[in-house]
Amino acid sequence: MIGVNCPLGNTWGFCGRDIGSLGINEDPNDPDDFGSLEEEDKDEIIRLGTTGPDIVDSNEVFEAEYGWPPSPPLTHTLASYHANTITELKFCGYRGAPLLWNPTPIAQYMLASLRHFHNLRHLILSLWLHTLWEGDHRDDEILDYWLNRRDPSTTALVVTNDEEPTGWAKELAEKYDPSVMAARIVTLMGPYISEEAKSQSGGMYVRASFCIGSYGGLFDFDVNIGKAADEIDWRRDEDDVG
């Protein structure tokens, strides 16, 4: 599933009010920026988000239902129909996506049903990387930091081994270093992946996709999450940059 808004659901609240200006380089008071983010039925999502799937009888007769009544998270519905057969899931859409750092509480209920996909081999999903530091969005500086890390001949913002990073340099090292981000993806997503899926040889492949920068560049981080050990690989593909 691919869209502008996160197909898993909106974890940012009505018009993004649950995160304020934390995550996105847009004006939270401008309805053109956040107006498409509708409020989720939190009570129903919380009630059903951590319950087991409602296994659907193969003889069930489909009945059309109109409107938008309270309903379980998308992952719960998918698990009820296809948990035993799905091997790949793709949820791409950045507005409303779970934040990599400090996700809102409702995100856990939208992700919890992934634990029931025991045959899942590949998971691709959008996450949001907040870039706000001291009142300014630092998207372009983060992109430069990543590029400079790949090319030692450039003037990267680094400190020597005997210096303790401070200020923005410390923030870069602690939240935006590729190895730190990859480890955080494992920490965030690991609890929501089936133990059986993680036990397969090589672990389960997870691609976390981020949209940052003045022109909405796409950057992918690939990790393999296993039960005994986590194999971490950072990947950036030139074709993914908008």
Rank of each mutant, 00 (worst) to 15 (best):
E26T: 08
P103V: 09
W68N: 11
S153T: 14
R47M: 12
L8E: 05
D237Y: 11
F14I: 10
R95N: 15
L8H: 02
W68M: 06
K175P: 07
T160M: 06
L123K: 12
L120M: 10
A83T: 10
Y205N: 04
D54S: 15
E65G: 09
N84K: 09
P53N: 08
K198S: 06
L143E: 07
S113A: 14
G93V: 13
H122N: 03
L188F: 07
L100N: 05
G213K: 04
S214N: 14
Y94G: 10
P72N: 04
E195L: 15
D27K: 03
E44D: 11
G167L: 12
Y94P: 02
A229W: 09
P105R: 07
T11P: 01
G202C: 01
A83K: 15
G13K: 04
K227W: 05
E65M: 11
D233L: 13
N10F: 01
T187K: 09
S199F: 06
V180W: 00
H116Y: 15
R236Y: 09
W234D: 12
D237G: 07
T166R: 15
W234C: 12
S36D: 09
T166S: 14
A228I: 15
D177M: 07
R149K: 02
G190S: 15
S179A: 11
D57R: 02
N84F: 01
G213Y: 06
L172A: 03
L218C: 03
N25E: 12
I55E: 12
E238K: 08
N148R: 12
E163N: 05
A107M: 02
S58Y: 09
L188W: 06
T77S: 05
L172Q: 03
D140F: 07
T155R: 07
E40S: 08
L129Y: 01
E163P: 02
W133Q: 05
F34S: 01
Q200C: 10
D151G: 08
P103W: 04
W133R: 05
I46P: 04
C211L: 03
G216Y: 01
A83C: 14
A169R: 14
V180L: 00
P73Q: 07
D54K: 12
N25S: 14
P103E: 05
A208R: 00
D18N: 02
D30Q: 08
Y176D: 10
A97T: 11
L127Q: 01
S58G: 15
I19M: 04
F91G: 02
D30Y: 09
L132E: 12
L8M: 08
S21R: 09
G216W: 00
R17N: 12
M189Y: 07
W146Q: 00
A183S: 14
R149E: 12
P191L: 01
A112P: 04
D57A: 13
